[in-house]
Every structure is written in C-alpha cells, then in structure tokens.
Design a protein around this nucleic acid. Structure first.
Ligand SMILES: [Mn+2]
Ligand SMILES: [Mn+2]
Ligand SMILES: [Mn+2]
Ligand SMILES: [Mn+2]
Lengths: 222, 222
DNA sequence: AATAAAATTTAGACAAATCTAAAAAATAAA
DNA sequence: TTTATTTTTTAGATTTGTCTAAATTTTATT
C-alpha cells in the first residue's frame, strides 16, 4: 500500500495547520502565498480536502482543519522535524540546509520507519530550529519562550527557537554564532532602531536588528 | 530545485536497467510485467524517456538505456541499496521488510544527502540482500558467486546474495536461519527432486528445494 | 447606500501518468 | 507462404494537480 495522501495534499495540510495556529482560521490567500501557488489552486484543493473529510470549509467563509486533518498534519510535522534532527545530528548537516530535504523526506509513508527513526535518535523533543517534535500520538510538550526583544537586560537565557526559518536568517545567525542552545544575554537596547546588543560568553558583543530579534526565541529561569 | 526526473520515470529506468542486465535488450511486455502496469503505459513512457535522451528506442524494435540513462539508473540503485542498508543496520529492520520502504526513499533527490549517508554508513559495498552498492560515480566491485546448486559438496561458503527477492523467499530463508553472511556447506544433493541438505555450524541440517537453492548465491575460496 | 477594491471561486485549459479498446506490426504455426 | 497468435503501438478517456482569465462575493471607501 502506497501513501494515504499525495505529497501535495500533505503539504497543504501542513501549511493550513501552521497558519491556523497563528490566526485560528485561515484564508485562501494566506495559503496561496505560504505555498507559492495561486489562489485558484488553493480553492481546488480545499474542495478535495473537504471531500476527504479533513477540512471544515464553506465557500467564501474561511476554513480550518477538523480533528482528523489536524491529526494527519501533526504526523507530517513529526516526520519533518525528526528527519531534520537526523540530518543535523547524524549526517552533520547545518541547521540552515536541512529544511528542503526534510520537505521531501516527510512524505515517506512508513509509520514503522518513523517510529524506529524516533527510537534511533533517542526520542528528541525539539528539532534543530527549536520547534517541538510531536510524539506518535501527535502530542508535544509546550515550552514557554520569549523573543529577544522581550528578554530583560542582563538576563542570561538559552536560544530555544527561531520564528522565520528562511535560509537567509539562518545564514545570518550562523555567522554570528547564534545557534539553538546558545546561552546569551542582552546588554543594550537602542531605542533609535530597536536594535539590540548581545553578549555570548567568550565572544565580543554582536548587534542584531529588530527584525532578527523578533525571530529569535529564548527560554530562561526567572 | 526539485527532482530532475519524476518517481515514475525513475522506476522505469531502474526496471529497464535490471532487465537489460539479464537480456541485453528489453521488451515492452517485460517491463509491463516487472512493473505491474499495462504495455500501453510502457509505450507511453518509452516515448518520454526517448525524448529526454535516456533511452535508445525504435518502435517495434526493442530498446535499452543509453549511457546517460544507465548513469541515472545506477544512482537510483545506489540510493535504494544504501537506504536498505541503513534500515537494516541502523534501524534494526529485517532484510525482508526493507524493500518497499527503500522503493520510496530512493526518490529523495538530494545528492549531498546520499553521499553523507554513504559516509555515515561506512561506505558499505553490498546491501542487505548481497547486491553491490554503486559508488557515487556509478561503479561497483564485481564479486564472483555461484548458486547453491553449483556449490561443491562439503565446501564451506558464505551467503553473498539472493536472486529472487520476494518477501516469500526471504521469509523462508529467515525461518531457516539463512542470512547474508551465513557460513554453510552442502552435505547432500538428492537427484530425485534436486533438493539439497545444508549444514550451518551449531545447527541441525536443513533441507531446501531446488527452487530455493537456485536463488541463494554464495562465495568461497577455492 | 452606492461604488470601488480586494478576495474568492468558477470555467476552461493543460501536462503527467495511467487505463481500455482497437489497430498495426512482428512472430509462430499450419 | 498463408494464416493465426502474440506483441506492440495508437486513439481516446480519466485522474490529479496546476494555471489564467473571468465571474462572483465580500469588504472597504467614499
Ligand atoms: Mn513537503
Ligand atoms: Mn524545523
Ligand atoms: Mn521506487
Ligand atoms: Mn536490495
């Protein structure tokens, strides 16, 4: 037996899942721009997903995944993030080069494969970008985190996630030696442009823009 | 950039490659039965592969891969066999359950991924079924091997490959504790039905049919 | 409330991969 | 060497996923 849903359908489910995490409900244009496709193509797919009973959808009224749709989406996200972890931890890829490959690997259908992979990797809780990895029941552990703009001055914290995950921001962070797990503190906040000066142990201070700061999440003990 | 050729095209290339290894040239019906599809579908694909300059084909005259087609086929075979090795050696799958999964994994496009995987696995020379793994230039090392029907009596030899790789024969061999690398010798050959009695160290003798014996390959020092 | 703009859906088309049924070509049998 | 059988190809459909252009609906602005 082949895969239950096509790669394309799976990509739509994943995109809708991510968008509805933010806005609760999702629009056609959102999905189109997220997936680099045309609104008409999205509408076509919405009908198919509704027919498959994965989506709550009334035309012109927005839409969201139903329970089954969320379940399927979470399994794809699980696969995506486990494969990313594998690529970084076992095959020595950089965290900024794994997304595209995982975008393909996430569509491999074997459930046994992914559970064995999970075991082989030691049941990791987060992927190389700090995002949580759902378990085989689709549950994940929530971690409270704050972005760098909101980290109090002189509070030491650990990088736990990245918002925007474009190759561009990852390249920038790589260059500044900011990675998942990096311990750092904010030394100065400049009101002029909201840029921030950071200090990482044993390194000279680095400055990042507001745009970057908003996309770096950290956790810290109070 | 996505994959250069569709999964379907890659499956055809691989099937044609295997068939032409045996017969030199390949027929439409051969491919159709190998791939569980219809002759008409094969003809359709042949035209596409010819248009892509991967295949030498004149209608009604048989066909075979050209240099480029062979090159592409060998890279897919390389991926298939490396993934099979990974599944058995790292994820503890049985050798009789990896083929289907590798059938999907072989279509992941990243060249860097497969080269890193090769390195991670320690550059294995053969897959779990004893078949050679091409290197990244498409070369493999030939090993002379003989099937069990032709193994001299009392000559100790090591299982190095399986011909038919159906789940059925693999299940049978599994049950009789015959695996890749097993050292064994032929104790008796029965002329009546060409069945064979084998001895594996520390085990009681087992009997296999001519049909099975023809599909188990071994190597041995003379 | 009427009009303009934006968002969404529909209509109709296309490419890829497959199929069935029928036609054409090659091969085997009489 | 005719005739019959098998193999292969073509013709025409179908399914999935995509697109453009046009129509429809919703939302925002005067
Ligand atoms: Mn994907
Ligand atoms: Mn990730
Ligand atoms: Mn395959
Ligand atoms: Mn194999």
């Amino acid at each position: 037996m082949g895969p239950k849903y096509s790669s394309s359908r799976e990509n739509y489910l994943k995109a809708i899942f991510h968008l509805q995490e933010i806005h609760g409900t999702v629009t056609t244009n959102d999905v189109a721009s997220e997936m680099q496709t045309r609104p008409a193509s999205v509408t076509d797919m919405l009908k198919k997903l509704k027919a498959q009973k994965l989506l709550l959808y009334e035309k012109y009224k927005g839409f969201k995944l139903n329970t089954e749709g969320r379940k399927v989406a979470l399994q794809i996200i699980r696969k995506h993030r486990l494969w990313e972890f594998f690529l970084v931890e076992k095959l020595r890829f950089g965290w900024d080069e794994v997304h595209e490959i995982a975008e393909e690997l996430e569509h491999i259908s074997s459930k046994k494969l992914i559970d064995r992979l999970d075991e082989f990797l030691g049941y990791p809780k987060t992927d190389p970008h700090g995002d949580p990895i759902p378990d085989s029941q689709g549950r994940w552990t929530l971690t409270r985190q704050v972005d760098l703009l909101n980290l109090p001055i002189n509070q030491i914290a650990e990088v736990s996630g990245i918002g925007d995950q474009s190759a561009e921001i990852l390249e920038l962070l790589n260059h500044k030696h900011i990675a998942l797990g990096t311990r750092l503190e904010v030394k100065k906040k400049f009101a002029f442009d909201n840029s921030i000066e950071l200090k990482i142990k044993n390194q000279s201070p680095v400055t990042i823009s507001e745009h970057v700061a908003k996309n770096v999440f950290v956790k810290y003990d109070e």
